[in-house]
Design a protein around this nucleic acid. Structure first.
Lengths: 136, 136
DNA sequence: GTGTTTGCAAAGTGTTTGCAATTTA
DNA sequence: TAAATTGCAAACACTTTGCAAACAC
């Protein structure tokens, strides 16, 4: 057998979150494997499927804690539903308006010829690009 | 005295919406004057202030009808709240994360050096850019 | 008159909160 | 055992819906 999930424990400790059973399980679902886009509902039902007992409220709390800690990035695509992205590198998104599926556009696939100067006393915190696509 | 609001009547008729009292009043609030960003609640309380009797449900219906007709563009900035923009030209947005205020970036202030090819069988329906800013 | 639109109130969706019980360090 | 975390259920904010009454043409 493997040792326990040392890398996940470390990840949580590095952002000062206690490695509780729930956070460990959610972190494993989120970070063990390829990057993904999840909603709270999606992650909650995945946890259920994996026989992890965790409440929806805790999933919400955890997603926000992870986001605050910089482990996730929240992306706004759809009014009325929050997505969280495990890919925190600079990148953008395709949003399929027909299927509601979100996919990544790597950061270097979009480049700006120019960007506007932010209003006085402000700095740019992020530049979010959503390319909405639909069937031809 | 002016003639009645012929231009608004025409605008509504041109998109096959009957110029009812409520739609006329909301259209006047939205389109008589500079471009603006509104939520349903904002528009509803403006209507109240202007002594226009209109229900919130009708404001929602109307905003969606106007959007469907191409008179408004819905912009997604904030999960859990829908904004509608009277400016339907290609343009982008600054979103002030501190004050929650939205402002326009004209279309030509952002240009893409390249844009990704959409997945097979798909076409780009829009490219939405949100530049989030916060105090330095 | 006939089909459209409106307003209300109720229901729906996704999210947050208060707080007692549990768990972690 | 002290502080952090969890789960539940209730509350919340925003939006949509069903349907009878009112309105536009």
């Amino acid at each position: 057998m493997d040792r326990p999930f040392t890398h996940i424990v470390d990840k949580l400790r590095s952002v000062d979150l206690r490695p509780t059973r729930q956070r460990m399980a959610l972190a494993k679902l989120l970070f063990d494997g390829p990057h993904r886009h999840v909603t709270a509902e999606m992650l909650h039902s995945e946890a259920q499927d994996a026989n992890v007992k965790v409440s929806l409220a805790t999933v919400y709390n955890t997603l926000h804690q992870f986001t605050g800690a910089g482990l996730l990035k929240e992306i706004v695509i759809d009014a009325g539903r929050s997505y969280f992205d495990t890919n925190i590198e600079t990148h953008h998104h395709f949003y399929n308006e027909d299927s509601k599926v979100l996919s990544d556009i790597s950061g270097d696939q979009i480049s700006f010829e120019q960007l506007p100067t932010p209003p006085d006393g402000k700095q740019i915190s992020s530049v979010d690009v959503v390319v909405r696509v639909r069937s031809v």
